[in-house]
Design a protein around this nucleic acid. Structure first.
Lengths: 252, 252
DNA sequence: CACCTTATGTGTGGCGTCGAACATAACGGC
DNA sequence: GCCGTTATGTTCGACGCCACACATAAGGTG
C-alpha cells in the first residue's frame, strides 16, 4: 500500500492542496475499492471514515419511513463523503452509498479532523464543499417540487456522467427510478423519449450519452445552476476531464 | 440603542453562549425590525449582514427561472440567517425573506466572522447549525418528492408555529401556496380539510392551531424528524417556549 | 353603512405520475 | 444454443395536482 503521489490523485479536493498540506494528509489515506451497492455510512449511524472518491460516484440518500430512500445529492471526484463531521456531526443523517463500482481514498474521522485543523487550505476547501453540496441539495428540493421526471432524469444522467468519468454508465432504469423517487415505468417512458430523440442509448443496464448538448437542453436549469456554483465557489468542475472524455459544454 | 443583556435575548444561539463570548458578540449586534416581505439577502447577491431572529421567522427560498420561488427551509429564534458566510460564502445562493413581522439582532459579516474566530463555542454552535439546517433542506427535498400537499401543509404550519412563538399566525393561503410551491386552490382544499377536522382555524389571513397533537398526526414524518435533529445535534428546540405558549408534544 | 379590497371556497377539464400487470428483449451460465 | 434471469417496453384505470375561472365571505375605509 504505497502512499499515492499527488499528481496521480484524481480527487480534485486532494489535488488542489498545496504540497505541504497534501504531505500532511497522505500518510493517513488508505485506498479502497467501492463496490456497487456498498454503503459508506448509514442513516443515524456513526461516521467512521471520510471518503475522497477517485472513480465512480456516491449517492446521498434520504431515508423515509415508508418507501425506498431517494437521492438528494451526488458526490464524485469533486467532493468528499462524510464531510459533515467537520461541522461537528458524529453520525450521518442521510445514507451514503455507491451506485457504481469505483475507488476512493479514505481517512478515519480523527485523522481527518486533525488534518483539517492543521491544514488551512484543506479546511477552507472542505467548508466550501459543504456549502456547494448544500446548494445541490437545495436545488434538488426545488427540482423535486417543480420539474417533470423527464427533465430530472436528464439532469441526473448528466450529473452522474460528469462524475463517472467514463462514456458508458452501468445503471438500470430500476436503480434510476429509486434515485429519482419515481416508478420504474415512468423512467422507462422518459428514457424512451430521450432515446428516440437520439440523446442517449440504453442497452440492458448500460447507458451512453449520444448527444450531450441535446441532453443538457432536455434537462432542467438545475443541472446548469449547480455546475455553475461548483465552479464559482470551489473552482472545481464536477465533470472529470480525463483523456478521451471531452469537457461538457456548459458555459454560455 | 442600549446593548441588550443576555437574559433578555430570545435567540437561542445567542442565549446559549457563555457570558464571555456573549460579551464579545453583543457590542456588534444591532436590533432591527423585520417587516413582512422584507428580503434579508437576495439570490446571487452579497451577504451584508447575519441575522439572529428574535421574533418571527425567515423563509429561505430557492429561486427558479420560471415560476415563483419556493421555500426550502425555515429559520426562527433557534437559528441564524446568512450563516453560510462562515463556510466562506460571499454571496447567497438562495433568498432569505421575512414572511411575518418580527425582529432580529444583526451583525455585519466582518464582525460576525471575527466573533466566530474568537469565540469557540459560538463557532461550534454555528457549524452545528449549518449541519441541522442542511438536514432540514434534505428532508424537504425528500418531502417534496414523496408527500402529499395536506401533509406538507401540516408540517409547514407546525414548523412556522414553532418559530413564531405566538398562537395566531398571520399567513394567507396565497403565501403558503408559494412556500409549498403549489396552487392556492390546492392549499384551500387541504386547509379546509384540516379545518373541518378541527385541527386548525382559518380566519381571513389569520390562522390558529386548535389541536396540535392532531396536526402533528396529520403531518408527515418530516416535521418530527427535523425537530428531533435540532434537539439532538444543537440541543435547541425550534419551538419557542414562551410564557403562555405550551411546548409542542413531539417527544414520544 | 356601502363599497372596495383581500381572502377563501368551489368547480371543471386536463395532464403527469402512480400502481400494477403483462409482454418482450437482451444477457449469461451451462 | 438453450434457458433462466435480468432489464426494458407498454398498457390501463385511478388519483393528485394543475390551470383557470368564478362565487362567496370577511375585513378595512370613507
Amino acid at each position: 500500500m504505497a502512499a499515492p503521489i499527488q499528481s496521480a490523485i484524481r480527487n480534485r479536493i486532494l489535488g488542489a492542496l498545496p504540497a505541504v498540506e497534501f504531505a500532511l494528509v497522505v500518510a493517513n489515506l488508505t485506498s479502497v475499492d467501492l463496490e456497487l451497492g456498498q454503503t459508506l455510512h448509514r442513516a443515524g449511524e456513526e461516521i467512521a471514515y471520510v471518503y475522497f472518491p477517485e472513480i465512480g460516484f456516491i449517492s446521498v440518500m434520504a431515508v423515509l419511513s415508508e418507501g425506498a430512500p431517494l437521492e438528494i445529492g451526488l458526490i464524485g471526484g469533486e467532493g468528499v463523503a462524510g464531510v459533515s463531521v467537520i461541522l461537528g456531526a458524529k453520525t450521518s443523517y442521510n445514507e451514503a452509498m455507491c451506485q457504481t463500482g469505483g475507488a476512493a481514498h479514505r481517512m478515519t474521522v480523527p485523522a481527518f479532523l486533525d488534518a483539517a485543523e492543521r491544514a488551512p487550505r484543506l479546511r477552507d476547501l472542505l467548508l466550501k464543499y459543504v456549502h456547494v453540496f448544500e446548494i445541490q441539495v437545495a436545488q434538488t428540493a426545488a427540482c423535486n417540487a417543480h420539474h417533470e421526471v423527464s427533465q430530472r432524469l436528464a439532469r441526473w444522467l448528466l450529473a452522474a456522467h460528469d462524475r463517472s468519468g467514463v462514456p458508458e454508465l452501468s445503471l438500470t432504469q430500476d436503480l434510476i427510478a429509486v434515485m429519482l423517487g419515481v416508478r420504474r415505468s415512468t423512467v422507462s417512458v422518459a428514457a424512451g423519449a430521450l432515446q428516440r430523440a437520439g440523446l442517449i442509448q440504453y442497452q440492458h443496464g448500460r447507458i451512453t450519452i449520444e448527444d450531450r448538448p441535446g441532453l443538457e437542453a432536455a434537462a432542467c436549469e438545475c443541472y446548469r445552476a449547480v455546475v455553475g456554483e461548483y465552479r464559482k465557489l470551489l473552482g472545481i468542475d464536477p465533470a472529470v476531464v480525463a483523456a478521451g472524455n471531452q469537457a461538457p459544454a456548459i458555459g454560455l
